[in-house]
């Protein structure tokens, strides 16, 4: 779906590369978590994926289309993006107006727009808020509206650029549940950027960024085994994983590395019934 071939990007000539000779590919329908500490290049990477930035060198292709100044409008139809600050991406004066914004830009006829706006709002469970002004919504609700605005355009990829960073725990939960719900009903590639590894645990694959390069890539269970190495580059594995690491050192071996509490408790229950 998305291919990077030796991509570099620097914000200005005097500073180093924010993304450095990066090659990688993201498959269709994959849920990727892109992790790294602040300043590791992960947000730059996201902005390269839909042509908000163009690479200094190297090539990027999305769905077979090579990214350039001539194609980025096409690519933005395929790649939607939810940003960090819920307040600063809300363009419309009401929820409905905001969801319609992308459709207006693409010149979709009005009757079609009305249908798509309602459908998208129902998908993120915000339909009952359709006439509300943004200042009446919580952060989590605003992010759901942002997702609806993207769903209405029917893209193939949605990038979440630290979309949970400014949310409270309930808002984070709302966002993750919405994404999980979408994955059940639609085929869609998700790129989820975060520095919170317990959120990354839900992804199919984690790509760890450090100093503008891909530092590691693998399934969450594989990545979380590198507790010490990750903490050296400023990341922290989920609490459950560190607890399991402690158990592991003291002779408790489970079939698979637990990613969250339920997996740990269930496996311990199985294990203890054998003992």
């Amino acid at each position: 779906m998305i291919e990077f071939n030796k991509v570099s990007y620097s914000y200005d000539k005097n500073s180093g590369n924010a993304v450095d000779e990066l090659s990688m590919s993201i498959e269709q329908n994959e849920w990727i978590a892109l992790i790294g500490h602040n300043g590791s290049g992960k947000s730059t990477l996201a902005k390269l994926m839909n042509g908000l930035l163009l690479p200094t060198s190297g090539t990027i292709s999305v769905d077979g289309l090579s990214l350039s100044e001539d194609t980025y409008w096409e690519i933005r139809k395929k790649v939607g993006m939810v940003f960090q600050n819920p307040e600063n991406q809300f363009v419309g004066t009401t929820v409905m107006d905001d969801v319609a914004f992308g459709l207006e830009n693409l010149g979709v006829p009005r009757e079609e727009m009305v249908k798509r706006v309602s459908a998208a709002l129902k998908e993120v469970d915000m339909y009952s808020f359709k006439d509300q002004a943004p200042n009446r919504l919580s952060g989590g609700q605003k992010q759901r509206v942002a997702i609806a605005g993207i769903l209405a355009i029917m893209p193939e990829v949605i990038i979440f650029d630290e979309a949970s960073t400014m949310l409270d725990p309930n808002g984070k939960q709302e966002l993750l549940e919405t994404i999980k719900g979408l994955r059940k009903t639609k085929k869609m590639t998700i790129v989820y950027i975060t520095h919170d590894l317990s959120e990354a645990a839900y992804a199919d694959r984690i790509i760890v960024m450090n100093e503008g390069r891909q530092w590691m890539s693998g399934k969450p269970r594989e990545v979380f085994q590198y507790q010490n190495e990750l903490s050296e580059i400023g990341l922290e594995i989920p609490l459950i994983s560190s607890i399991y690491a402690g158990m592991n050192e003291h002779g408790v071996k489970l079939e698979k590395e637990p990613l969250h509490m339920k997996e740990l408790v269930d496996q311990l229950w199985k294990l203890s019934s054998k003992m």
């Binding site: 050192e249 003291h250 408790v252 203890s272």
Partner: peptide, 18 residues
């Protein structure tokens, strides 16, 4: 967290209270 893991492992080995 890792000490907690250790405590859980110990309790498991002790067989719990079941």
């Amino acid at each position: 967290p890792s000490e907690l893991g250790k405590d859980i492992a110990k309790a498991l080995h002790a067989g719990g209270n079941r």
